[in-house]
Design a protein around this nucleic acid. Structure first.
Lengths: 208, 208
DNA sequence: CGATTTTTTGACCAGTCTGGTCGGTAATTG
DNA sequence: CAATTACCGACCAGACTGGTCAAAAAATCG
């Protein structure tokens, strides 16, 4: 179906993908506008519907595409690599940066999928989402070495608290970085800051 | 301006307020539909524009109204009451529950304000938001007794980590509870669960 | 080069939805 | 009773919707 789209030059393809991801992420399936997408992508309406039969087709393509990207570039690279949750998260942050650089709106898009409730796509979306979520959960949190955690607090709680703290750390960083262009970001300082928080978490939640 | 609205019976008024809060929270100012609001509120279009001159007028009223509610019922009740961050957060959770019960979409609405970017309301919104945010920050995190924290980690980091973990705990609880009707929620179990996490945080981040 | 095919354009379609109006009715007040 | 206020919902012009299509432009091929 999308043969003519995948044949496009990478730059143009990415621009269309990112424009569409951004629009769907911002407004959800129902309120997203194909007109806004073509405007942001710098192509004509006809072109978009030359690549994709319908809006729904485009949306589901993006689901599969982002699912593939995140699985390949993100989940598979961290899964089961190390039982230490904090080491895993550190690697995850690096990988996330790389994916973000190419597809800035991709994580917003995926996050939005979990609250998407347009009837038109509910069926097709449900399965894809479930497998993606459970796979991600497995890669990030599966097969953890819980014996590293301190023992006077249930491991489940330690894991949750670390996860939540880091998730919010990620949100804050993204908000801070959000406005700047990708080039202007001081990655070194960012990493140093992140490591400081990781070290604190290790001190507080791990066996000493 | 809104004399006729504030004169309404409380039940009807709250229904309109909640319907509008929900719509604005879900779609943002620009895409929110007054038609949806009147439908959800069970009133006619004419009535809504009898109470509020324009959509913008309604929106700004909601900003001020929620700001007032949250300040009175939430911020003022926790501010400076105790230097212990965890005690403060525990009280905050209780108060939040009470506000949520009457205005379920209120926190979603306020959260959405921080990412609102419709040009029509940018000016009016900016000031209100800044004062609300800084006041909330002051009440929740101002005048903390940092000496309670362990000393081998910078207090700033401890504070951040606790804040983030609890914020995400709140998100998760809200998601879990979200579907159920307000009556069905087992508040006792919820509080016990919350206390377990608070205790863990105290063990890990406070002086022993 | 010309002929054929593929890609791309943007004006255009019918239809939905927008914020807001207004003449009329129902309820309340004095 | 009259006068005022609260409320209804059909209605407005105009913006925007997803999607089409004839024609132009570009690429491919012999």
């Amino acid at each position: 179906m999308h043969d003519n789209f995948v044949g496009l030059k990478e730059e143009k393809r990415d621009k269309i993908i990112n424009a569409a991801l951004l629009e769907f992420a911002a407004k959800g399936y129902g309120l997203a506008s194909t007109n806004e997408i073509v405007k942001a992508a710098g192509i004509s309406k006809g072109a978009l519907f030359h690549y994709f039969a319908t809006k729904k087709d485009l949306f589901l393509f993006l689901c599969d595409y982002t699912s593939g990207v995140v699985s390949r570039e993100f989940y598979e690279q961290i899964g089961h690599c190390d039982g230490d949750l904090l080491i895993r998260y550190r690697r995850a942050a690096m990988l996330k940066g790389a994916v973000y650089k190419r597809y800035p709106p991709i994580f917003e898009f995926i996050k939005r999928l979990t609250t998407e409730n347009a009837a038109e796509i509910a069926g097709e979306l449900k399965d894809r989402l479930e497998t993606m979520v459970s796979y991600g959960y497995e890669c990030l949190l599966g097969n953890l070495d819980l014996s590293l955690f301190r023992e006077d607090v249930p491991a489940r709680i330690v894991r949750d608290l670390i996860t939540w703290a880091l998730e919010n750390y990620g949100n804050r960083s993204q908000a801070l970085v959000g406005d700047q262009s990708i080039e202007d970001i001081d990655v070194t300082a960012l990493n140093a800051d992140f490591d400081e928080y990781l070290e604190a978490l290790r001190k507080c939640f791990y066996k000493q």
